[in-house]
Simulated assay, not measured.
Amino acid sequence: MIDIERLADWLDESGLPGKGEPIEHRHVSGGAQNEIYEIRRGDLHGALRIPPPTAPAARDQGILREWRIIEALNGTDVPHTEALAVCTDPGVLGRTFYVMGFVDGWSPMDPGGWPAPFDTDLSARAGLALRMTEGIALLSRVDWRAKGLGDLGRPDGFHERQVDRWSGYLARVKSRELPGFDVAAEWLRAHRPLDYVPGLMHGDYQFANVMFRHGAPARLAAIVDWEMGTVGDPKLDLAWMLRGWPEDTSEPEAADASYVDLTGMPSRAALIAHYAEVSGRQVDDMDYYDVLAQWKLAIVLEQGFQRAGDNPRLRAFGPMVLDLMRSAAELAGTTRYAG
């Protein structure tokens, strides 16, 4: 729980609305990395994001990283939570935290599946995927240098580092062979994108990390959860979003192709074309990003599987890793892309 009296004093000093008024708050969500509280005080309606007391000390720097990104997005056309204030003094609540505007919307991770009208109106549901695609297309156009994010990542040599970085990551957790790993890794070493235009990227872009406005038509309310945000290659966000996306979403398997029901969504090709139109980037080399995204995700999930113990959710990653790595190797072996 947060210390409301200390928070009130800090809010007063920060010049946010509602000075001197009582604070209403509720715990919205939380885990090992971050907790979120809804805050109401006079005209202030915000969300406070803070690491739990047990989180590693490095999470304070992660919170500052997130803050820098959402603050940089203020004034842009990227749907995001408004950056309101940040606190780096551990004497206030014990950890670094920030307050952002509260988003009046819904998450695809809310229980019960798609809300009305997206549960039955497939034409309306298609708009969800289009708006989500536009979110990262607009993000890729942000002038990250002008926004003071020149030191956020290491854009130079981004692709040259990927195989060594993630191979080393896997070596630290590896306890079994992953068929296809070497094939995909060597293909990635031998190939590069047709062009590489550094840009701001989310790093874990998927339905789980966006919120939509209530009702139709579909409107993206905010991109959220910026823990993996960096300056790199934005097209990797698109490939990450489209992992396992079926080309024909009218087929029955579209309902089970992802953790959400993709029935009625635009095809993979249509979303790639839409991204190209909005972002202004060429997409002829998407096979490269598809291989990288599937190979990288397999490694990330392997870490979870290796520490699963009796956790059924993490143990389920085991066969998923094998499928992803096999798919990455197969795509590397059949792609016509020759970059």
Results as ranks from 00 to 15, higher is better:
residue 91 G to D: 13
residue 91 G to F: 03
residue 93 L to A: 06
residue 93 L to S: 09
residue 93 L to E: 05
residue 93 L to N: 08
residue 94 G to K: 11
residue 97 F to V: 00
residue 97 F to Q: 04
residue 100 M to I: 11
residue 100 M to C: 14
residue 101 G to H: 10
residue 101 G to W: 12
residue 101 G to T: 06
residue 101 G to Y: 14
residue 103 V to K: 13
residue 103 V to E: 15
residue 104 D to E: 15
residue 104 D to V: 06
residue 105 G to N: 09
residue 105 G to T: 05
residue 106 W to P: 09
residue 107 S to E: 04
residue 107 S to T: 06
residue 108 P to D: 09
residue 108 P to E: 10
residue 108 P to I: 07
residue 109 M to F: 10
residue 109 M to D: 13
residue 109 M to K: 15
residue 110 D to N: 15
residue 111 P to K: 07
residue 112 G to N: 05
residue 114 W to S: 02
residue 114 W to A: 00
residue 115 P to D: 12
residue 117 P to F: 08
residue 117 P to I: 02
residue 119 D to S: 15
residue 119 D to N: 14
residue 119 D to K: 08
residue 120 T to Q: 14
residue 121 D to L: 08
residue 122 L to F: 11
residue 123 S to K: 13
residue 123 S to T: 14
residue 123 S to I: 06
residue 125 R to E: 02
residue 125 R to F: 13
residue 125 R to Y: 11
residue 127 G to L: 08
residue 127 G to H: 12
residue 127 G to A: 07
residue 128 L to Y: 11
residue 128 L to W: 09
residue 129 A to I: 02
residue 129 A to T: 00
residue 129 A to K: 00
residue 130 L to E: 14
residue 130 L to P: 00
residue 130 L to V: 14
residue 132 M to T: 15
residue 132 M to D: 02
residue 132 M to P: 00
